[in-house]
């Protein structure tokens, strides 16, 4: 197969970027999108040219490292991660536009590589159960019905790639944050910190410069893990529930 690629090129965070055009041919339809870029890079290197920087690691859809916007869609056309997108899904001869995930909270580091550490900082605000390493109660002492476990797992499956943020016209991180809150607040282990969790995370989200949610639903449409939109409803409910609690010492959203 052959393709024309328009690839975002940017030397560093502080420099301006632009699109660069490349033609690639002889691509196997079963090559993944990233393997196609590997091939392009190999050819550029053979010509002594600068290669294109992009992120990836596991290449099996679970680490969340790959992060390309393909023809305007985070991760590409199929609602799977970039590394699980295959060239057979594109028309032979197509022109494809490749950009980094776009969001104010994800500054570009170089070319297609962005800095998504803001997501780590949201987790630091309370996306966990506080517990030290040491003796714990037997897990079967607090049974969890399989239906609850399934719901928890649907949310916990988030790979933290940030596609939801890149897809959102407001640059909101509600799906990511909602998934965290749903995961912990539904479990018995998450109850002690339940009242403050949603509010702490929402405050962190605001502080990192993520936008607010106006129900576009684009996030869930691109999410490679199919995190359901319900988690945002859960986040809102838990946030309000927390705000009503008098014993809470965390500030409120301004």
């Amino acid at each position: 197969m052959r393709f024309t690629l328009e690839v975002w090129t940017q030397a560093s965070r502080d420099e301006e970027g632009h699109f660069e055009r490349y033609d690639v041919d002889g691509i196997d339809p079963d090559a993944s999108f990233l393997e196609m870029l590997d091939e392009l890079n190999a050819r550029l290197a053979a010509e002594g040219k600068r290669t294109i920087a992009f992120d990836s690691d596991c290449r099996e859809g679970i680490c969340g490292m790959c992060s390309l916007t393909i023809d305007g869609q985070p991760h590409g056309p199929n609602q799977v991660t970039t590394c699980q997108t295959f060239m057979r899904d594109f028309e032979d001869g197509a022109t494809i536009r490749v950009e980094p995930f776009r969001s104010g909270a994800f500054p570009v580091v170089r070319d297609l590589v962005t800095d998504r550490s803001a997501l780590d900082r949201i987790v630091q605000a309370g996306g966990y159960v506080t517990t030290k390493t040491g003796p714990k109660p037997d897990p079967n002492a607090a049974p969890v019905p399989p239906a609850v476990q399934q719901k928890v797992m649907d949310a916990a499956a988030c790979i933290g790639c940030g596609a939801c943020v890149a897809a959102c016209p407001n640059g909101a991180a509600m799906l990511f944050t909602g998934a965290k809150v749903t995961h912990f607040n539904l479990l018995p282990q998450g109850q002690p910190e339940r009242a403050s969790r949603a509010r702490s995370l929402v405050l962190a989200m605001d502080a990192e410069g993520f936008g607010g949610c106006t129900n576009y639903g684009e996030c869930a449409r691109v999410c490679p893990q199919e995190i359901p939109l319900d988690v945002i409803g859960m986040l809102n409910r838990e946030y309000r529930r927390g705000a009503r609690r008098e014993d809470d010492t965390v500030g409120t959203r301004t």
């Binding site: 897990p139 049974p143 019905p145």
Partner: peptide, 22 residues
């Protein structure tokens, strides 16, 4: 065995039986 206990305490959602047990 301690590892499983530790992980469950952190909120790791292992699969459960109908009874709710691991």
């Amino acid at each position: 065995a301690n590892i499983i206990d530790q992980a469950v305490a952190q909120g790791v959602p292992f699969n459960r039986e109908y009874s709710g047990e691991l």
